[in-house]
Amino acid sequence: MSLKHFSILILLASLFGASFLFMKIASPSLGPLFLIESRVFIAAISLIIFARLLKQKIEIKHKWKELIVLGTINAAIPFVLIAYAELNLSASLAAIINSTTPLFSVIISILWLKEGKNMRSLFGIIIGCVGVGILVGWSPIHLNVKAILSIGAIFLAALFYGIGGIYSKIAFQNMKSFDLAIGQQLGASIVLLPFAIIDIPNQLPSITVTVSVLGLAIFSTSVAYLLYFYLIKNIGSTKTVSVTLLVPIFGIIWGVLFLHEQTTLSTYIGLGVILMSIFLVSNTKQKTSDASQQVAK
């Protein structure tokens, strides 16, 4: 990997990691549903503008049903679940738990695609479970009902990301990546719109919240996906998916720098164990890696 591509990979990880910061800031003010509707709608418009500037033809009408399904399971549901979870959890903890997405991708690949399992992938899954246990069990947060539900919501989001990655692989084999990104955000926006209308905030957001929403939609979604697909085209999917290992690191960095979140030794031990498991799982098979490409967030 060249220095240029490595630098883009780091930038991509920082943008994906920043999404947890932006959601942590904006979710309490706007609510999960309205926040995520704003995210996917602005992201879709931004991507369409990018496509026009690059003079790329957008072809999504023939797959509109599938794109609504993809937008639902790979954006609308997991985005809302994470935004809800961050009402009670720190951005750094949410980013770390969400990094278990590749583990769910492997499990779903085995169950859905009937892919052959091997000892390396199974060992990676077991290590990942141990890492999560260390992270949550030794976390300084008070494990009340809200905290437990929030942790479960992020795991559920990771499960949906795993399903969405495999579904996109099956349903959109011949679709351009740019069209897929636009269609996914539009599909999610359509699904969330009626719920967001019901949940409109009672007051205008502050400047900080507004900037967070724009940062989430434009930088952590639109720009991030453009960089993501650029890397897939130029260095391949296997190397690009290594961004999964870097996202929680930036999630911690942004949370500590801007939200003054506290981390403990157990945070870094749990993170290290989870990253080790992801490394084992993500390098097991090319097919599994491809299914794990939809990272988040």
Results as ranks from 00 to 15, higher is better:
21 L>D: 01
22 F>G: 05
22 F>L: 13
25 I>Q: 09
25 I>K: 07
26 A>L: 15
26 A>E: 09
28 P>K: 10
28 P>Y: 09
29 S>R: 08
30 L>C: 11
32 P>A: 14
32 P>W: 15
33 L>M: 13
34 F>M: 13
35 L>N: 05
36 I>C: 12
39 R>G: 07
42 I>W: 06
43 A>T: 06
44 A>L: 09
45 I>F: 12
45 I>Q: 01
47 L>H: 10
49 I>F: 12
50 F>Y: 15
50 F>C: 09
50 F>I: 15
51 A>S: 15
51 A>N: 03
51 A>I: 14
52 R>D: 02
53 L>E: 00
55 K>H: 13
55 K>G: 05
56 Q>S: 12
58 I>C: 01
58 I>Y: 00
59 E>R: 12
60 I>E: 00
62 H>G: 03
62 H>W: 05
63 K>H: 13
63 K>G: 04
63 K>E: 08
65 K>S: 07
66 E>T: 11
66 E>P: 05
67 L>Q: 04
68 I>R: 03
69 V>Y: 14
69 V>H: 05
69 V>W: 15
72 T>A: 08
73 I>S: 02
74 N>W: 08
74 N>E: 10
75 A>G: 07
76 A>W: 01
77 I>Y: 01
77 I>M: 02
79 F>Y: 15
83 A>P: 01
84 Y>S: 00
84 Y>W: 13
86 E>D: 07
87 L>T: 11
88 N>L: 02
89 L>D: 00
89 L>G: 00
92 S>E: 09
92 S>T: 13
93 L>Q: 05
